[in-house]
């Protein structure tokens, strides 16, 4: 017991973790401070550094007044909520599904699920842009031959949905695989006890699986929410934010203002700061609830 304590405590932890902390401080804190500084300035792309002007909070006031920024905020929220919720629900169903399969099918499904995650997102976006083509795309081809349905995926009504579908396609595998291995880890006895009690599978899911999986669910949600908030490449190659601004997520808004055809680096930085604050608050909320679990776990 004594030695174990010794193993656990050791003498000095500094040499073990200090290098990584120094590296992280250098490569993340410095740019972040710089970002804050930029956000207080008015400075345009490809003009000399000396032409910047300190304007304090003007950029932030402009942001809040800007219709397109407000719109981006709403679109981002919609995107994150829908995408994460559906990925979670589908992930849960698919995970339960894999669990019910024989070993051969399990491997087949796991392999099938791993593949979308390895595909470069920008390529996935382009491929899906062609799949969603209202006239010549495969999606409408299947829809119309199976259900006689033709949807204009490029229209303002469906463009956002089409980008969400791509995210769901690419990242539901992530949620299902993690939830699946979470379910595997939950002791089989719990299930059998429930089965004997004659509980329906829905009851098993809500009363047993989900509570036992809570830590896993939290980490899945955390990772997916953060990634969905950051989404850029897929939407960029699919719609470039259009039509109108129906698919203009915050990260696209930053890009449009900071680079693209405008080049207001200061303004763009201020939006980036807002996004950063948003991400930090959300992740803190999730991490706290997640941390509370971990403490309980001991």
């Amino acid at each position: 017991m004594d030695t174990i304590k010794k193993v656990k405590r050791g003498k000095s932890v500094t040499p073990w973790i200090a290098p990584s902390i120094i590296v992280l401080l250098l490569i993340t804190i410095l740019p972040t401070l710089f970002l804050f500084y930029l956000s207080l300035n008015s400075w345009e792309l490809a003009t000399p550094w000396d032409t910047r002007k300190l304007v304090w909070l003007k950029n932030f006031i402009d942001d809040i007044k800007d219709e397109q920024f407000q719109n981006s905020l709403v679109v981002t929220m919609k995107y994150v909520v829908v995408v994460v919720l559906l990925e979670f629900v589908f992930g849960l169903i698919i995970a339960a599904f894999i669990k019910g399969q024989n070993p051969g099918m399990r491997i087949f499904m796991i392999v099938a699920l791993i593949l979308p995650m390895t595909l470069t997102p920008s390529v996935a976006g382009l491929i899906w842009r062609s799949n969603f083509h209202p006239v010549a795309g495969v999606v409408n081809y299947f829809l119309s031959s199976l259900f006689g349905l033709k949807i204009n995926w490029y229209s303002k009504e469906y463009a956002l949905l089409s980008t969400m579908i791509v995210d769901i396609w690419q990242w539901t595998p992530f949620t299902s695989l993690i939830l699946f291995s979470g379910m595997e880890a939950v002791s089989q006895d719990c299930y059998e006890a429930a089965m004997i009690d004659g509980a329906s599978s829905f009851k098993v899911l809500t009363r047993i699986t989900i509570p036992l999986l809570k830590p896993v669910i939290l980490i899945v949600l955390l990772m997916r929410i953060m990634d969905a908030l950051k989404m850029f490449d897929v939407v960029f190659v699919m719609t470039e934010g259009g039509p109108g601004n129906t698919t203009e997520l915050l990260s696209l808004n930053i890009y449009r203002i900071g680079f693209f055809h405008t080049g207001y680096l200061g303004r763009a930085s201020s939006i980036a700061v807002i996004l950063l604050i948003l991400v930090t608050i959300l992740s803190q909320i999730l991490i706290r609830s997640f941390g509370a679990r971990e403490e309980g776990k001991g």
Binding site: V135, N152, W153, Y154, A159, G242
Partner: peptide, 21 residues
């Protein structure tokens, strides 16, 4: 115009002509 024109770039415009749409 064919559905989806609101998101057509050159690629899709030219392809629509090439396809005979």
């Amino acid at each position: 115009s064919p559905p989806g024109f609101e998101n057509y770039n050159s690629e899709e415009q030219c392809a629509a002509v090439a396809r005979g749409d």
